[in-house]
Design a protein around this nucleic acid. Structure first.
Length: 392
DNA sequence: AACGCGGGGTC
DNA sequence: GACCCAGCGTT
């Protein structure tokens, strides 16, 4: 067992712990939100909600949760779902490896657990995509096991309660909060205790603009008593996303279809479909209209083919490029910021690609294809520009 | 231990 | 624009 004193934390005496549990759970009973997954004790339902809630807000999750259980009502149906349907169910939620891991775990449950959801912390932990937080959440909520569920909210609340001088963003410090929770957790109502701390952390004890005077446990909080609420939790700021410059190629054929390509990489937006994209160093040279003379032409030769040229080569198409200038599309990921310029054009042929991961798709069929946010923004910008053109 | 992995809310 | 977030897997 970890010695909390070594980390400068003085744990409360037993009477204070019991009093804290009572205060917190009484507040929870009176103030807890009526959420769809709180009406169920089905471990599959709890699991789906917990995975969706990773780095994602409750209001965003609710409609996805309802639809997901509608599409995949059982572990077995999830295990057998086709990839496109899986991605479509998650489209717009982000962190798409979550749903891939969930399907892998559903298959584990079918093969290794006879279709029965594991009912121990160790069994749950074996499942793909389930780490210590989620294992604790499912164990405590669905099976009433006294396991802590330490997420960002819990760490923030505990850091303020005990003035923890350790960075909550450092993974190895998680064990400190885990140890605190093993002592604090209410053995009779572990699931409610975990959820109460999370509710408290997401609203009253929110990271920005907290309302500590409204906290049901402010009398227990060292930071509140000492006026150090703004000091805790200790957390290093994140790094800024790296800017990436891309040209998106929106190309229409005679039938009004557009070229879409499947992302075969296993990394960012794996498995999603996208308008052809080409990465460039930056947009500086071609933004300057006055430079359209020999100097720039020589430079472009030195730097190889233009995006238009390399696109025509890659896809073996002759494109009638539009002169229209489209708005630039921007999209921020956790670690990248995409700046996208749209190039549009038409082809008079309807060449079929033997490689079936490149297709001509009509706008009516877009809804059959998983399309991530940047592609949706590109399509919106393209359509808007065409409409504006039509009004002239 | 650091990084890769989305998207949306809030100020 | 800058901040935040109901994490996990990989390297």
């Amino acid at each position: 067992m970890l010695d909390l004193k070594e980390y400068g934390i003085v744990m409360w005496p037993e009477e204070k712990i019991i009093s804290f549990r009572e205060k917190l759970l009484t507040w929870y009973d009176e103030n807890k939100r009526d959420l769809p997954w709180r009406r169920s004790k089905n471990p599959y339902h709890i699991w789906v909600s917990e995975i969706m809630l990773h780095q994602t807000r409750v209001d965003t999750v609710i409609p996805y949760y309802e639809r997901f259980l509608d599409w995949f009502p059982t572990v077995e149906s999830l295990a057998n779902a086709p990839e496109e349907r899986l991605l479509k169910a998650w489209e717009g939620l982000g962190y798409y490896s979550r749903v891939r891991n969930m399907q892998a775990a559903a298959q584990q449950i079918m093969t290794d657990f006879g279709g029965q959801f594991p009912n121990t912390y160790e069994g749950i932990s074996i499942l793909k995509g389930i780490g210590p937080y989620t294992a604790g959440a499912i164990s405590s909520i669905a099976f009433n096991l006294p396991e802590p569920a330490v997420d960002g909210n819990v760490m923030r609340v505990l850091a303020r309660l005990f003035e923890v001088n350790h960075d909550i963003g450092v993974p190895s410090n998680r064990k400190i909060f885990q140890a605190m929770m093993e002592i604090l957790i209410d053995p009779k109502r572990p699931g409610d205790f975990n959820q109460a701390l999370m509710d408290l952390g997401s609203d009253i004890e929110s990271p920005v603009n907290p309302r500590p005077e409204e906290s049901p446990v402010k009398d227990f909080s060292a930071a509140y008593q000492n006026g150090t609420m703004d000091v805790y939790p200790i957390k290093e700021p994140k790094k800024k996303p790296l800017p990436i410059y891309l040209k998106a190629l929106v190309v229409r054929n005679d039938r009004g279809q557009y070229l879409l390509e499947k992302n075969e990489s296993e990394k960012l937006l794996a498995g999603f479909w996208h308008f052809p994209l080409i990465e460039v160093d930056d947009f500086s040279s071609d933004n300057d209209q006055l430079d359209l003379f020999s100097q720039v032409k020589e430079e472009s030769r030195a730097f190889g083919p233009s995006p238009q040229e390399s696109f025509e080569q890659d896809y073996d198409l002759e494109v009638n490029w539009s002169q229209q200038v489209f708005d630039q599309v921007k999209h921020v990921f956790s670690h990248r910021k995409w700046h996208i310029q749209i190039l549009a054009g038409q082809v008079t042929e309807t060449k079929q690609f033997s490689d079936r991961e490149i297709r001509w798709v009509s706008p009516q069929e877009f809804s059959d294809y998983p399309l991530a946010k940047p592609q949706q923004k590109i399509w919106q910008a393209y359509k808007t520009a065409l409409e504006d053109e039509g009004l002239q």
